[in-house]
């Protein structure tokens, strides 16, 4: 057998190296994703199990018998549906208000330079970092005096501030990307600045508005402490406190129902995120990456 020509050997070893590299990359990807995804698999699998199997066979990997019983139980629980409705109302309202406020403020911070504007922007961002339990302490007492406990407005105005500071920064970032000539042309044509903003600039800021809506929705949907404190009646309760107070008994916990409920309350955030993730990524990194 004659020896292979040197170039062929080289090409082969290169290709082999590339194949190896590919195998390594996918193997690493699998290991790293397993860390993130195994608990989520367990959440899903448990939600399709019977209560008996969870106790009798805690290591059962595939749900067998596979049952939707836990989902039926959760979905026929009127309390769960009330909590879900309350969470949707509060968080959708929060999103809308945050988008409106952040759009106006972010646009102006992008277009106007005034004394202290940089300091004001940094100050707004700093408010996002204040310890929320400390704020809640005083707001709880204020809302109690104003008879606003157990109402939507108390929750909504609180939730708006969760995402607003960061949202103003995101909107400013997006508005910086829209050339000023566009609204100047509209203003020469006789539009007021507000008309120019609404008719010409807003359509170009849609990705930013989606990012802000999503960010503020997720921030509110995640809250536990505020909703636990500001509501006490079952009819006004949101999902996170509802979870604590419904499925986790002192003596027994309905794990399959808890997991089925978990899957159901994760659907809105996962769905919204999957559809719109590129806008959020763009928004979150607009301030962080550039520069």
């Amino acid at each position: 057998m004659s020896a292979l020509s040197p170039t062929l050997t080289l090409r082969r070893s290169r290709r082999r190296a590339r194949v190896w590299h590919g195998v390594m990359v996918y193997a690493l990807l699998a290991i790293l994703l397993a860390f993130s995804l195994l608990p989520i698999y367990w959440l899903l699998a448990t939600s399709f199990k019977t209560r008996f199997d969870i106790f009798a066979n805690p290591g059962q990997f595939f749900p067998f018998p596979f049952t939707l019983h836990a989902y039926q139980q959760v979905l026929s629980d009127p309390h769960f549906l009330t909590y879900f409705k309350n969470s949707l109302i509060v968080n959708l309202a929060t999103s809308l208000i945050t988008v409106a406020l952040a759009l106006l403020a972010g646009y102006s911070f992008s277009r106007f330079r005034f004394r202290g504007n940089q300091a004001l922007l940094l100050f707004i961002l700093a408010t996002q970092m204040f310890p929320s339990a400390v704020l809640l302490l005083s707001l709880y007492i204020l809302f109690r005096q104003l008879h606003l406990l157990n109402t939507y407005p108390a929750l909504i105005i609180s939730y708006v501030t969760f995402g607003l500071p960061f949202s103003i920064w995101m909107m400013k970032g997006f508005a910086d990307g829209v050339p000023e000539e566009i609204e100047q042309a509209a203003m020469i044509d006789g539009c007021s600045r507000m008309q120019a903003l609404l008719r010409v600039v807003v359509p170009m800021l849609v990705p930013g508005m989606i990012a802000v809506a999503l960010f503020s929705f997720l921030a509110g949907w995640n809250d536990l402490m505020w909703s636990l404190t500001l509501t006490s009646s079952t009819s006004m309760r949101l999902i996170p406190p509802g979870f604590i107070l419904t499925y986790v008994g002192q003596f027994q916990t309905y794990w399959n129902q808890l997991m089925a409920g978990s899957v159901l309350v994760s659907i809105p955030t996962v769905a919204v995120f999957t559809l719109l993730q590129r806008y959020l990524v763009q928004g979150l990194t607009s301030g962080g990456v550039k520069g």
């Binding site: 993130s36 997720l218 979870f243 604590i244 994760s266 996962v270």
Partner: peptide, 9 residues
């Protein structure tokens, strides 16, 4: 996914 599902979950 671990970041998107609600923290209470």
């Amino acid at each position: 996914l671990p970041w998107v599902i609600p923290q209470v979950v």
